[in-house]
Write a protein that binds this DNA or RNA. Structure first.
Lengths: 196, 196
DNA sequence: TCCAGTTATGACAGATCCTGACATCAACTC
DNA sequence: GAGTTGATGTCAGGATCTGTCATAACTGGA
């Protein structure tokens, strides 16, 4: 019994935690991969075996959320219009993020502080958008519409997510509620006008 | 007379040309900064004095377009609704890109081949979006609307730009015309529905 | 029991990216 | 013609990321 692994397990999780802590304390660019590896008790080579590059340690978790989002979109429910489907899919995604307000907040602060990280986040979201667009087309939407729908949904989701993360109060309006409340505004925004 | 500069002029332009050629031939990641500098007849250090990093050489020109786009938005024309204003601003931007179909096509092919470049492009567009949103707010739009408007405008512009670049025929539908034709679709897309 | 295969890691060399510091030299200014 | 400016070269060095091989725990079967 008493299996003694040669090294403590979960080096991946320890690296991710160490990275988030150090980035928060000193700022992304002031932290080297060696720093992260040291704090996690491994070498830099192990870091790069777990994460493609220094940036990826902040985004690896995201990949766990996409499949369930796609599943929600694909759920067979008979004919459905774009708006209620978006409400259901984005609402479900928001539910799953609801419990992680504080970690998400720290992470977003780091990303917002570095242009390259911002780019990485947007690139990842673009691939999500692509996948969602494909899922919408699969369900029978016109492909051209599907792309625009996915783009609009994401723009709206991003806006509400940032507003939610920026709100420090513990009993702020929950994210899913924000999303559902914001959806109708897309309809009216094109008719907005200036006074000068 | 006969001023003999110590070095040939326009090292920046020669570097940009060399980079585009080499990236097209061998692929972005297979080309080193030394390769680019060699072909341009300078050293790598000069490359980094002209461009912040290896990626920037593909995006530097973009910065010339933003000011005129903002100027179009700010043009005082009396009260105006969002949709015609977007049509005018995006149309004018499309006009200025119209003549550069082939270079833009090559550039986009390189960007699409590399995730990091995609991220850089999206980050740059996000900053544009931010600036445009601010310009819209400055003109009197509700700030929340302005952000969503800018996002929708960009999503639409990107879609049409990619379609235009993907069309190899010389007398394809011109970009400005595509943009203006696509704008109304935003209104109807939320009412699209599936049949299953 | 013993041995071969698997797996996670360490160790090390090296390519590439990017920066800081200083030197060089034509062109310009006075 | 002396001094200044500006674009470039040269060099050292840190950080990121990869390839390769060695090591030691674990695993499964002879």
């Amino acid at each position: 019994m008493s299996r003694m692994p040669r090294w403590p397990a979960d080096s991946r999780a320890r690296l991710a935690d160490a990275a988030l802590d150090l980035f928060s304390q000193r700022g992304y660019s002031a932290v080297t991969v060696d720093d992260i590896a040291d704090r996690a008790g491994v070498t830099a080579r192990t870091f790069f075996r777990q994460f493609r590059d220094k940036e990826e340690v902040l985004f690896a978790e995201d990949d766990l959320l996409l499949p369930s989002l796609l599943a929600t979109i694909a759920e067979p429910t008979g004919p459905v219009a774009a708006e209620p489907l978006m409400a259901r899919a984005l609402g479900a995604l928001a539910e799953r993020m609801q419990s992680a307000h504080e970690p998400l907040r720290r992470r977003q602060a780091i990303i917002d502080s570095d242009v390259a990280l911002m780019g990485r986040e947007l690139a990842k979201q673009a691939r999500w958008q692509q996948a969602i667009s494909a899922a919408l087309a699969e369900r029978g939407f016109d492909p051209a519409d599907a792309g625009l729908l996915a783009a609009i949904g994401f723009a709206l989701f991003r806006r509400e997510l940032h507003a939610w993360l920026a709100d420090p109060s513990i009993d702020a309006t929950p994210l899913p509620e924000r999303i559902r409340a914001a959806l109708p505004s897309v309809r009216t925004v094109l008719d907005a006008a200036t006074t000068h």
